[in-house]
Design a protein around this nucleic acid. Structure first.
Lengths: 207, 207, 207, 207
DNA sequence: GATGAATGAGGATTCATTCAT
DNA sequence: CATGAATGAATCCTCATTCAT
């Protein structure tokens, strides 16, 4: 008898939304474990017992998948930011909350942050992408807090909001660098948040 | 079929140092024009009329070449930083000078900065590399200024120097992002330098 | 991610014959627009708002679909040929009519002809296919005319009918080539028909 | 010990021209044996004990390789045609020689002809290609003979040379079809050449 | 010092087709 | 009659790097 074609069982049928979910989960795991390049689509597929083709039914490309994984993360971050702000009663408190949130996010999932910093930011397809828009909404939260603080007289108004926003996020990220990519020790989330907030607030305190 | 026989003459023999020079120049041009991945070693070789093998006589790998290109750039930057500091008579003046220098560097050679941010930082081989060490020396200039300022009582001393340093450089880079990678408009070097310095100084002014 | 959920309604149910009709129509459009390979079954399905599976209910394979499309065309051609012959009163008139018909067909639907020449003829599954049989019936019309002409003494009988037939059809097709595949100008149907008929009937020997 | 990288011996070094030769030979064999699609570049490489990359050093793509194989064949054909003409002392003799040559070529290497008819002719990249130009030179030989014959009064001059040329080559090819693609019997080169020449020269009108 | 022939690994992607619902 | 989730095969091509000459 000739070798029969190894008829593999079809994976369990799933409604679209659910399948997307499982793929996203597997992709996230794979990407964070091995990085983008070292991850193969076949590898992702194997984790959830489907074939590569199935993944391409739902995502146009491997890169698309990466972007989708990160988009979900940003979604959650944005929600957390909004929640945090609701409980902040002064601009300074809002600022502190957002700084802490950002540090916490980096602290909690370094691999995902590495992915974001390494594989996405600065790539040609980032500008104007959904992810970029989400990022803008997210950092916009802090810009809003600053603007409100200026309006209400808590902060001096002669420095551009965008510059302040970038200083905060740029500072945080730069400072997290060795934690993320080197052999740096854990981030002191609480302390750092206080220090950064302090630096910025005193820098923008009205005379 | 690919290009014909092209019976090429041996390229002019050159003393080692000179040959290294031409290679570095060609590599810099190629990398900044097309990015690291899109640049081929063969392409670099062609620019100076040698073959790939010749390049490998002088550099161990394509990546090595990139690192060497950037190392030269940092060398110059470091020298500029030192010069600038010599003319600064107060800590604040020193800080302003270094901020301005950094902004100017980004302003003057965006492609090279892109290379640095995109292809080098965050890569596994950066930590501990020569380039990293140079970067540390370079940013160390600013750290020194801050430390001196604290010692001399110009700056409050209760915030970590490293955090301040990262805030400055992180802020600058974050803020340059859209200029480098998006369709952002030119950097206002002078104005930005003033604003950043102002923000930081008032933030760290002793009460 | 690929197109959203697109919760589609079931397409209107149709009696078999009618559904076959719509599929054939869509397939013809798709194939002639983009060629066989570039056409996807999914694309054909989309045109008539059904899913791929539906098409496979009616046709065994994509190739089958192509063959069916062309078979309809041949059907019409064959009918035209028969009609044309009915009005021809001499062998030469019959020959002229068939030559003109063939040229006209090429002239009227170049995309379909391209399909026939490019994707079907010379493929392994053509020999012995329904399409091939139709082709034989169609070119058989001309063979019959020739045979009749020989029997009746209008034509010399020492050349194989098959060779004559192939010379006519091969000549026409070869000559249409640049019109079909190049940037050639329109076919001069009437003139060419006369010339070809003349050539075959009289040869090129001067009287 | 970790798995050493199976260091395969480098294939014998060859000068460019010679290597091109071996590749072309292997490609020709592979293509004619299995057709274009079924042939893999890896398979070609294996035949001559090199790796795929080597082939891509000399040819830009698999298709390029096919075209190059056929170009060589045409080269030879063109030369044969010129030789044949040199010995023909009348236009009719020239015509006969070229017809016979063409039939002989088809007879001698059906697989290569199949390649030409199936994979090249009618493809988008054929028009304007080197191959096309060669084909034009080749068929131009026959056009020249016809033109000369007309000038010298051996042939009537009221039919377009291009039409005659296409009739000859189209007729031959059409007639060879079943030999090439079906289960048809061998071509009767000599007989067919006589008949075709006769047909073209005298037509089918009885004297 | 320079050449340039040869290596070799590696994976994303497409879509016709099937079949459970 | 229609859906649409899942399969799975199959290979071209690039280019950094090596090394014999």
């Amino acid at each position: 008898m000739s070798d029969g074609p190894v008829q593999r069982q079809h994976a369990a049928r799933m409604p679209r939304a659910e399948r997307v979910e499982t793929i996203l989960e597997a992709a996230r795991a794979a990407f964070t474990e091995k990085g983008f390049d070292a991850t193969t689509v076949a590898g992702i597929a194997t984790r959830i017992d489907v074939v590569e083709g199935t993944i391409y039914k739902y995502f146009d490309s491997k890169r698309d998948l990466l972007l989708a994984v990160l988009a979900r993360w940003y979604e959650a971050l944005l929600a957390s930011g909004r929640t945090a702000l609701r409980e902040a009663d002064t601009p300074r408190a809002g600022l502190l909350a957002l700084v802490r949130l950002h540090l916490q996010a980096i602290h909690d999932d370094p691999p995902l942050c590495r992915l974001m910093f390494r594989e996405v930011r600065g790539e040609r397809d980032y500008e104007g992408s959904v992810l970029h828009r989400q990022n803008q909404r997210y950092t916009g939260l802090l810009a809003d807090v600053l603007r409100d603080g200026m309006t209400q007289g808590h902060f001096r108004a002669d420095l551009p909001v965008a510059l302040l926003r970038d200083t905060v996020y740029g500072g945080i990220e730069h400072h997290s660098w060795s934690f993320l990519f080197g052999r740096g020790r854990a981030l002191q989330v609480g302390l750092l948040a206080e220090q950064i907030t302090d630096l910025v607030c005193r820098g923008i305190e009205p005379r």
